[in-house]
Design a protein around this nucleic acid. Structure first.
Length: 159
DNA sequence: GTTGAGCGTT
């Protein structure tokens, strides 16, 4: 029998309604200003936060929008899921996390999940899958230890 | 304006 305590705890597939929406699948070029403009149609927006990758300084392709009212957030979620922004179909859900992680002192102690120098995931779930042409070319460039070769595109019939 | 799938830096 499940404890009634867990009933109000949101999970990834069953987020609890709140004033905070998570927006996923964004183009990395979509800005907080754009999102604010779009979301404000459904009610006052307190804050928009596009999550930025600390290493690259680019968007990680998702963001959080805080409405003043959870009712407005609910409407915005329903209206905006599946909407296209900058050529990307976005997904909108109530956030399962309610705020950014508190700042941690010192260095990151966790297990690295991304190889910033290799440009791909390590030991990850992409083994056995066919990489995209873009990724294949980047891998090819690295293996040749030189920069972009147009000849590769011709040989492989891409580009 | 380069990949995949992604719930968070102050």
């Amino acid at each position: 029998p499940m404890s009634s305590r867990r009933r109000h705890v949101g999970s990834r597939d069953n987020p609890q309604p709140s004033r905070c929406l998570g927006i996923f699948g964004l183009s990395i070029y979509t800005t907080e200003q754009q999102l604010h403009h779009i979301m404000s149609k459904y009610g006052p927006v307190e804050r928009v936060q596009v999550v930025i990758d600390a290493k690259t300084g680019r968007s990680r392709g998702f963001s959080f929008v805080y409405f003043e009212s959870s009712e407005d957030a609910k409407v915005a979620k329903e209206q905006c899921t599946g909407m296209e922004i900058d050529g990307r179909r976005i997904r909108v859900d109530f956030s399962i996390t309610q705020r950014a992680h508190t700042p941690t002192p010192g260095i990151y102690m966790g297990k690295p999940t991304y190889d910033y120098y290799g440009g791909g995931y390590r030991g990850g779930g992409y083994r056995g899958r066919s990489p995209s042409p873009y990724y294949r070319r980047r891998r090819y460039e690295r293996s040749r230890s030189r920069s972009y070769s147009p000849r590769y595109d011709e040989e492989r019939g891409i580009g």
